[in-house]
C-alpha cells in the first residue's frame, strides 16, 4: 500500500482531474478534455472510469464496481482489487452501502441517493462521431447546438429497422443543452439518468470527462411518431421473479432452453434473500 500514492495517481494529476470534473458538473453534458494518464490496464478496460474514481475517492469511501450489472466479472473484480490495493478503501457489492460506484454499461436497479457518486466507463464520448468523424466539426456542432444530425441517426434506424433500434448508448439531451452519450448503458436505464446521485463519465483513451449533476433534466431523443421506449425482455427474472429489472438472457443447453436473470446481481441476490422466487429458483441452477 505504501508503495503507491493514495488511489495510485499522484496528487497533481488528481487535482487536474477534479478540475475537469467540476467543470463538467458546472456545464452538464459538456465534454471536458483532460490529460488522461497511462494506467496499469489496457484502454477499453475502464481507464477513464478508474481515473475519475481515483480522483473522487477519499479514504472514508466505500467502493463498488459493476460490469454489465455484475460485481463478479473479471473486469469488476480487478478494478475493485486495484483500489483495495492502492487506496485501501472499503469495497462492497451492495449498492446501498457504496458511496462511489464505478460501472460499465449499467445503472443499478436500486435507486441511488444524494450521498452517492456513480462513475461510468465510456468508450466513445462523442455521440455525433459515427455520422461526423471530424472532431473540429462535432465540437462546433455542440457549441452551436446543431443537433439535427443526431436525429438523422435515429431516422436511419427507423428507415432500416422499422423502429429505433439503437438499444444502448442511446443519445440524450442534458439540461436542454448538450447532447450526450450516456455510455453504452441499455436504453432501459435512460430514464434513471435523472437521479439524486452525482453522475461522472470518464473516457480514458479519448481523454474526455463529462458529468450530470443531481436532479438534472435528461431527455432521450426521439420522434413524435416514434417516441422513446425504455425496453427490456418481456419476462420476469427466473431467479427472483422481478418484473421490472433489466434482464440478461442465458442459454442453458444445446436444446435451446434459456433463462432470463437480472443483470444487476446484487439486486437479484437481495431479492432472493428477501424470499422472492422465480421460475427456476427451486432448481438451484445458479
Amino acid at each position: 500500500m505504501n508503495e503507491y500514492n493514495f488511489a495510485y495517481l499522484d496528487e497533481q494529476t488528481k487535482r487536474m482531474i477534479r478540475r475537469a470534473i467540476l467543470k463538467g458538473l458546472a456545464v452538464p453534458g459538456y465534454q471536458v478534455p483532460f490529460a488522461s494518464r497511462e494506467m496499469p490496464m489496457p484502454y477499453g478496460w475502464g481507464t477513464g472510469g478508474v481515473q475519475v474514481s481515483a480522483a473522487t475517492l477519499t479514504p472514508d469511501d466505500t467502493f463498488k464496481v459493476i460490469d454489465q450489472g455484475a460485481d463478479d466479472t473479471t473486469n469488476a473484480v480487478s478494478i475493485r482489487k486495484f483500489f483495495e490495493n492502492t487506496a485501501g478503501v472499503e469495497t462492497t457489492e451492495e449498492t446501498e452501502k457504496a458511496t462511489v460506484i464505478q460501472t460499465r454499461h449499467r445503472i443499478p436497479e436500486a435507486k441511488l441517493t444524494g450521498d452517492q457518486i456513480i462513475v461510468y466507463q465510456v468508450p466513445i464520448p462523442e455521440p455525433l462521431r459515427f455520422l461526423e468523424p471530424r472532431e473540429t466539426e462535432t465540437r462546433k456542432m455542440h457549441s452551436l447546438e446543431e443537433y439535427g444530425l443526431m436525429h438523422v441517426k435515429l431516422y436511419e434506424d427507423i428507415s432500416q429497422h422499422g423502429a429505433i433500434s439503437t438499444s444502448y448508448a442511446y443519445p440524450v439531451k442534458v439540461s436542454e443543452r448538450y447532447v450526450m452519450d450516456p455510455s453504452p448503458i441499455p436504453k432501459f436505464d435512460n430514464p434513471k439518468l435523472e437521479m439524486d446521485a452525482i453522475q461522472l463519465f470518464g473516457a480514458g483513451r479519448e481523454q474526455r470527462i463529462y458529468a450530470v449533476p443531481p436532479h438534472t433534466k435528461v431527455v432521450s431523443l426521439d420522434f413524435e411518431d416514434y417516441p422513446f421506449e425504455a425496453t427490456k425482455a418481456d419476462h420476469p427474472c427466473d431467479l427472483c421473479g422481478a418484473e421490472d429489472s433489466y434482464l440478461d438472457e442465458v442459454i442453458m443447453d444445446d436444446a435451446g432452453n434459456r433463462m432470463f436473470v437480472c443483470s444487476d446481481t446484487d439486486f437479484c441476490r437481495s431479492r432472493r434473500a428477501q424470499g422472492h422466487e422465480g421460475r427456476l429458483s427451486k432448481e438451484g441452477a445458479v
Binding site: 439535427g148 438523422v152 431516422y155 411518431d225
Partner: peptide, 26 residues
C-alpha cells in the same frame, strides 16, 4: 453524407431546423 440513406440525406436539413415527425420527414 455518403453513409446515410438518400432519405436521411434529404431529411437532415428538416431535422436540423426542428422537424421531429418521422413520417412527415420521410
Amino acid at each position: 453524407r455518403m453513409s446515410v440513406s438518400a432519405g436521411g440525406n434529404i431529411g437532415e436539413r428538416l431535422m436540423a431546423v426542428g422537424d421531429r415527425h418521422y413520417g412527415q420527414i420521410r
